[in-house]
Design a protein around this nucleic acid. Structure first.
Lengths: 164, 164
DNA sequence: CAAAAAGTAGACCAACTTGTCTACCACGCA
DNA sequence: TGCGTGGTAGACAAGTTGGTCTACTTTTTG
């Protein structure tokens, strides 16, 4: 559900979800036992969506330089709303959601963490013969790009990173 | 008010603020005309706090390498709760708050953006003779470090960045 | 065709939200 | 002494929250 991504979890009530989806309340609670379960499902769904998009963007890179270029280029596409499957850019759903649910024991928070680790793992696999430091640096840069694009409304940040 | 930083804006009601601060409701609404005004005040306060802390951390750096080292070292201190004035680390208050208030027209969102631009400006002033690309890269890395430390519960990320 | 399963709309509940207002109290000052 | 200022505690209003439940309709299935 894009509503949560677009506006944040706490800002969207169940009734808005129902109205927007056209589903009945009983039906929703038949499928999900609580709002938290629903949120977890949306996180899970977007996790798969995002990972599959990103891995497709990174495949067929020959060199590490090429891969970096493809990564930043992909981020630029996303940030500038040219990736239909990811919806209107509103930062990283997982960073945003972790910001709302900070307790370490919360399953929502844990799912956000797992997503980020999966992204890092994906980068590691995509980078040939790179040491961990190089993987880390690339990951940190991409996190910085996503965060900056959103918080600073800086839609060109990935494009500029591409040139350096 | 640390409550907002610790738990997020939507997660904390006015009544919790009152209970925690020992102030009466009427007194609070005598000083702030709404919750939004209160939130704006806390953002403003933390903005000054953070900028003054950071600029003190970066002063007296002789070379750009030294400055980078001081920056990452400062982030490491913050992340590992060794900076009393910043309180228990819970990521960047401004990134977190922007995640909750995404509308561009919202003053809260605009304040978050302004804070980030101020940080970038601070870095630019601290870096001697550096081109914009170098400033940008350092800013993106530090944003990535803060975000990763929080979302991945990775308390060593700044320390590792320090070594590379 | 009939029964069961799963959908619908929406009333309802208890708890909570922000914000207002009343009633009272404590202090400094003339 | 008395008055104004600014505090306190908390009832209250109006609306929203997540979630349950009833009553009815549609779809699926044997």
């Amino acid at each position: 559900m894009g509503l949560f991504y677009q506006h944040g979890i706490h800002a969207i009530g169940i009734n808005e979800v129902l109205k927007s989806s056209g589903i009945a309340k009983k039906t929703l609670y038949n499928h999900f036992e609580s709002k938290e379960a629903l949120v977890l499902a949306t996180l899970e769904q977007r996790h798969h969506l995002f990972i599959s998009w990103l891995s497709r963007c990174l495949e067929n890179a020959q060199t590490n330089e090429q891969l970096t270029e493809q990564l930043f280029s992909a981020l630029d596409q996303w940030i500038n709303n040219k990736v239909a499957m990811l919806g209107d850019f509103r930062g990283c759903y997982f960073i945003n959601t972790a910001a709302e649910f900070g307790e370490l024991t919360n399953p929502i928070n844990q799912l956000c963490q797992r997503h980020k680790l999966a992204v890092k793992t994906l980068l590691k696999q995509a980078l040939n013969d790179a040491d961990d430091a190089a993987v880390e640096r690339l990951f940190l840069l991409s996190e910085g790009i996503i965060s900056t694009a959103y918080t600073c409304h800086d839609m060109d940040v990935a494009k500029r990173a591409l040139k350096n």
